[in-house]
Computed example of a mutant assay.
Amino acid sequence: MALTLYQEASCGLIAGAAEAYFSFPFVSACLPRVDPTTLSVVLRAKYRNIFDALYSMSANKKISALWTNAGPYVKTRMGTNVGMLTSYNPSLCYLRDSCGLSETRAQLGASAVSAFFGAACSVPVKNVLAQGKSGSSLDCALKILKSRGPLAFFSGFSRQFALVGPPIMILWFAYENVRKL
């Protein structure tokens, strides 16, 4: 039984939120620290391993310190997952059934479409969050729309596609091959 678009979008939101929330401490431990007052990159401490980094980040604080500023990352990952998950199955069926592509070519094409929509759904979120230092997300979105027009939401798309495209394509190709087993 195939999922509806609404169900796939809901799954994408939930999966993106869960993945981002639980992976954020590891992601933030691997990224260089940024000083919010000067926006200069501070040299990373010499951690022995990822667990040492996590311990150091939460030392003298509560464990919840590991999730400080997780909101923007979670929202962006939710956007990526919604675009990625809602576009893959319809694309795969269309390319295989309507276009007559072989299974491998249909999977490759559908994974590229999925990567495109994953980037397309996350870039506006990133742009609104980058503008979002002053006000709510809706206010920031309206400011972007009024000052630069609707295409401004997609500035940085090529960079985001280059960032998320290959991992998404590899994920879907691996998923289909594991599913065959």
Rank of each mutant, 00 (worst) to 15 (best):
M1V: 08
A2K: 00
L3R: 03
L3I: 04
E8C: 02
E8P: 01
A9K: 01
S10Y: 00
G12P: 04
L13C: 13
I14T: 11
G16I: 14
A17L: 13
A17N: 09
A18V: 15
E19R: 03
E19G: 08
A20D: 00
A20M: 06
A20C: 10
F22N: 06
F22L: 14
S23C: 04
F24N: 12
F24A: 14
P25K: 09
V27F: 05
V27P: 15
S28I: 08
A29N: 13
L31K: 11
P32S: 08
V34Q: 02
D35T: 10
D35L: 04
T37R: 15
T37L: 05
V41L: 11
V42G: 08
L43A: 09
R44Y: 00
A45H: 12
K46D: 13
K46P: 10
N49A: 07
D52N: 13
A53T: 12
Y55K: 15
S56C: 13
A59V: 13
N60Q: 12
I63R: 10
S64Y: 06
S64A: 11
A65V: 04
A70E: 13
G71E: 11
V74P: 09
V74A: 04
G79Q: 12
T80H: 00
N81W: 03
G83V: 07
G83I: 07
M84H: 01
L85W: 00
S87C: 08
Y88P: 10
N89L: 10
N89T: 14
P90S: 12
L92H: 12
L92Q: 10
L92T: 04
D97A: 13
S98K: 10
L101Q: 05
S102D: 15
R105E: 14
R105V: 03
Q107A: 07
A112D: 06
G118C: 04
A120D: 01
C121D: 02
P124M: 11
P124R: 13
V125D: 01
N127R: 11
N127Y: 09
N127F: 05
L129D: 08
Q131C: 05
G132W: 05
K133N: 05
K133H: 06
S134I: 02
G135A: 10
S136F: 02
S137Q: 13
S137C: 14
L138F: 14
D139R: 05
D139H: 10
C140D: 10
L142H: 12
K143H: 03
I144K: 01
I144N: 01
L145T: 01
L145Q: 06
L145K: 04
K146D: 05
S147Y: 06
L151C: 13
A152V: 09
F153E: 11
F154H: 11
F154N: 03
F154I: 02
S155P: 01
G156A: 11
G156Y: 09
S158T: 14
Q160M: 13
F161M: 09
F161S: 06
A162Y: 03
V164T: 02
V164G: 00
P166V: 05
P167L: 02
M169I: 08
M169D: 03
F173V: 07
A174W: 01
Y175I: 03
E176S: 13
E176A: 06
K180Y: 04
K180Q: 12
L181M: 01
